[in-house]
Design a protein around this nucleic acid. Structure first.
Length: 843
DNA sequence: ATGGTGCACTAACCTTTGCATAGC
DNA sequence: GGCTATGCTTTGGTTAGTGCACCA
């Protein structure tokens, strides 16, 4: 980060630098002119910076022809840019940390949405729900389950019937288990788009049709939010988005009534849109509370009475865009029923936060904008005024139709909008609603499968918004198996000349092939920029320094006069040395695929630059492609000698880089061992470490001939054992030495106490009892419990117990006769006639 | 209003093979 | 005098991504 910050300083935009300088130049100049007689400045910082601003350049010409003239002193300052230029707002870019966090949130959100999808899938299998649905079905539609070769057309009447009988409605109550919610939706013959879609899946499954529940995972962005100011904006907009998140395409026959239509799409939560519900207190979440408050306030005729208070509250806590939009829509609804006078409407509409872009628009304009934003695809799509719902189709079903194509086909069925086989319309509708088709996942049999490819034509736009493939594949792998097991029946492939039993494949793998084919047949983008990172196509214009086209063809087309090649033709180029790291070497006869200017020239300093110049400009680097390389063929070890490079070492980037007949031993302190054994070796360089602005090679272990491996390892083990033993002994010696120092110092201290403290205390009157008790406890503890190592045999050891001396004037005397010696622990116990004992460890 | 283009800016990545001095 | 440890100082080119102005 230090690096970045320094760099940022260096690279800071011109205007930023100027603005700082201008302020500096401006202030000190004024100050200087005015302070000729006054050397003290209130701000010492400015004085400190005097040298800096003196260095600032004031164009000589500025004195004559300039607009900014200081009339008092005649000094003219030319401003290159206005200090408060509105153009230069500071942009906070996303850091690596932000990106990592966004990625984590994205992953977790994906997992949650997958879990949600699985729950719905399980609920769709509920036999009670299925039976109930069947009981509602007209008899003629029941025959559908008997159709041998199902086609999309055959499903149309069923979908129409479902569409007529099940409507999208606002959620009826607080959050409850999805299964219960589904049962409730079935009973009410309507529910959230998610529930209605799930009911359709359940119905299809009840009819023995192989069906999946398909859901667009409307996941949080993989890219972090950027500008700080923007962050707060985005936060609110996200909240708003969450509220609207679950929206789905609205059909013209939207059920109406006392409840305005809304949905709660996914895990983000539910909300209450109807005024009556809000008033009656069905408020399961905080959002609902806010909504209800807002709506209640709007309904009250005496709106202006509360205006001041509301305004002050809004100042503290500005309302969200979602709330504003809701208010606006409510007003629209109420204006239709003449509940609120038009004049008041406009009043209320202006009461919103001025920060909201929508707030500045009239309600009609806002409605118009929303209506315009809504999809206008071929099928009937409408936005109900006052409904809070504008959105993309996020849930539908896929039914496997054996009668479609040669091998059968998964057919898209959006029962909510009564669309059959409309997979190509999905992307347009979703894009029109500003949603992304990043992940379309089909759920069946407790499993899941990514079917995004079926619904998305412009994969290159979707791809960067998705998590990296390895993670996503790993997550889906077990679920894909479950899904495949549930839906992937054996499919007869119909050929005239073959029996159907000869060629069978699972539906799942056939579908995989279908999706893979789609991936390879994406249409060419019409804009050049798309070719920069397009996974399938490439344009020479966008190749990087270390890339080339090989082979140069086939030409797939043209875009703005530029030739389009397959991405597979783009090859990465490396220097010879760089290929060695990959365990490859450039073939002898190969000419460089590309010659580029060396980027390391300037780094070495001017000396080398001059040398290069004298040599005729050898600052060019030859690059080679992989097709010009062959597996690395290093000279083998001969007669126990390790082949080394020009630096006398072996670069061990990987095992491939080891010369044949050698082995890399990654242990420390091996060099003295092999030197002692007289075995030839080479230090193993395993990489670089960037430190202090330089690359420092990192060495780890050595490379020796394979035949010496065992010898070296044995010797190394012995050496290590010896070293450890020595280390242990050294530590013991150190410990003893420290103990001896400690005890010596204690004895000296004691002796000093005896000599000097005694005299002092005899003169000082203290509380004798207190002192004695305190110190005697400490002293006896020390004497009795101490186990002390001793350098020599101790004869007639004396320990002066100051406490006892204080009280009894007693000096311990340890007679040799009273001591005993324990040979096991090498401990000698000495006793004084007063009962005090001392244990002495002898060496 | 929208989308394409070109330019500018910037974070992150990639590159990559000490030196002088003090202390033992 | 030779060896070892320590501190010094802290790159710059390339690329991908993004923002912005301009234009069709």
């Amino acid at each position: 980060m230090e690096k970045s910050s320094t760099k940022r300083k260096k690279n800071t935009g011109k205007s930023k630098f100027q603005s700082v300088d201008i302020i500096r130049d401006n202030q000190p100049l004024k100050f200087r002119q005015n302070s000729d007689k006054n050397d003290e400045h209130p701000n010492p910082q400015i004085q400190d910076d005097e040298v800096d601003w003196e260095e600032g350049c004031i164009p000589s010409s500025s004195c004559s022809n300039n607009n900014n003239v200081n009339q008092n002193n005649g000094v003219t300052i030319e401003f290159d840019a206005l200090p408060e230029s509105p153009k230069k707002k500071r942009i906070r870019r996303a850091t690596a940390e932000d990106k990592e966090f966004a990625e984590l949130v994205h992953k977790v959100h994906l997992l949650c949405l997958i879990a949600r999808g699985r729950l719905i899938d399980v609920a769709c299998d509920d036999p009670l729900i299925q039976a109930s649905l069947l009981s509602l079905l007209p008899p003629h539609l029941l025959k559908l389950s008997e159709v041998g070769k199902l086609t999309a057309n055959a499903l149309t009447p069923l979908v129409s019937w479902f569409h007529q009988n099940f409507k999208v409605r606002s959620p009826s109550s607080a959050e409850k288990p999805f299964q219960s919610a589904l049962a409730y939706a079935l009973e009410a013959q309507g529910g959230t788009p998610e529930e209605v879609a799930a009911l359709s899946v359940s119905l299809f499954r009840a009819l023995n049709l192989t069906t999946r529940f398909v859901s667009v995972l409307d996941v949080s962005s993989l890219k972090p939010e950027v500008d700080e100011n923007e962050q707060s904006y985005n936060a609110s907009s996200r909240e708003r988005k969450d509220i609207f998140n679950s929206s789905t395409l609205m059909v013209s026959k939207m059920s109406t009534g006392t409840k305005s239509s809304a949905s709660h799409g996914n895990i983000h939560g539910t909300f209450v849109t109807s005024v009556s519900e809000a008033k009656h207190g069905c408020l399961p979440t905080n959002i609902e509370v806010k909504d209800s408050l807002a709506s209640t306030q709007l309904i009250k005729p005496d709106l202006s009475a509360n205006e001041t208070q509301n305004a002050s509250e809004e100042d503290k806590c500005p309302r969200k865009k979602g709330d504003l939009e809701f208010e606006m829509q409510l007003q629209m609804a109420m204006s239709a029923t003449a509940l609120v006078a038009p004049g008041r409407r406009s009043e209320a509409s202006t009461s919103g936060s001025p920060t909201s872009p929508l707030a500045s628009l009239s309600p009609f304009k806002r409605i118009k904008r929303i209506t315009e934003e809504s999809p206008s695809s071929s099928h009937a799509i409408s936005t109900a005024i006052g409904s809070r719902k504008v959105g993309a189709p996020l849930h539908w079903a896929e039914v496997y139709c054996c009668g479609e194509n040669m091998t059968g086909k998964w057919v898209h069925i959006d029962a909510i909008n009564s669309i059959v086989d409309g997979e190509l319309k999905v992307e347009a509708a979703v894009t029109a609603c500003k949603k992304s088709l990043s992940y379309v996942v089909a759920f069946a049999g407790h499993g899941a499968k990514d079917v995004t490819r079926r619904y998305c034509e412009k994969w290159y736009k979707i791809s960067p918004k998705r998590i990296y493939l390895e993670w996503w594949d790993a997550v889906l792998a077990p679920l894909k198996k479950l899904e495949s097991r549930a839906t992937g029946g054996m499919v007869p492939v119909h050929h005239k000349d073959m029996k159907s039993t000869d060629l069978v494949d699972s539906r799942s793998s056939l579908e995989d092939m279908e999706l893979a084919t789609r991936a390879l047949t994406e249409p060419l983008p019409t804009n050049q920029q798309a070719y920069r990172t397009h996974p399938l196509y490439a344009m020479e214009k966008w190749l990087t320094k270390y890339q080339t086209l090989h082979p140069r063809g086939p030409v797939l087309g043209f875009c703005s006069g530029h030739t389009v090649y397959p991405r597979t033709c783009v090859q990465i180029l490396h220097t010879k040395e760089r290929w060695l790291r990959e365990g490859l070497q450039v073939k002898e006869s190969e000419l460089p695929a590309k010659v580029v200017k060396s980027s390391t020239k300037n780094r070495r300093g001017q000396t080398i630059e001059v040398e290069d110049f004298c040599e005729g400009g050898s600052d060019e680097v030859s690059l080679f492609g992989k097709w010009q390389t062959e597996p690395l063929c290093l000279p083998p070890a001969v007669n126990g000698i390790v082949p080394k490079n020009e630096r006398g070492q072996v670069d061990v980037w990987s095992e491939k880089c080891l010369p044949p007949g050698t082995v890399h031993l990654r242990f420390p302190r091996l060099v003295p061992v092999v030197k002692r054994l007289g075995i030839n070796f080479a230090p193993a360089m395993v990489g670089f470490e960037f430190r202090n602005g330089r690359s420092i090679p990192v060495y780890e272990g050595i490379v020796v001939c394979t035949e010496f491996k065992e010898t070296v390892l044995e010797a190394y083990a012995e050496e290590e054992q010896r070293r450890e033993e020595e280390e242990r002994k050294r530590e013991e010696r150190q410990a003893l030495s420290r103990w001896y120092q400690l005890l010596s110092s204690m004895v000296v201290r004691q002796r000093l106490n005896n000599t000097y403290l005694n005299n002092v205390e005899s003169k000082t009157v203290t509380d004798p009892l207190k002192t004695r008790n305190k110190s005697s406890r400490a002293a006896s503890a020390y004497v009795n419990e101490s186990t002390v190592p001793h350098r020599d045999n101790v004869h007639g050891t004396k320990i002066h117990d100051s406490d006892k001396i204080h009280s009894q004037n007693h000096e311990h005397v340890f007679l040799t006769d009273d001591e005993n010696f324990d040979e096991d622990s090498m401990t000698r116990t000495k006793r004084c006639s007063c009962g005090v004992s001392v244990q002495v460890e002898e060496l």
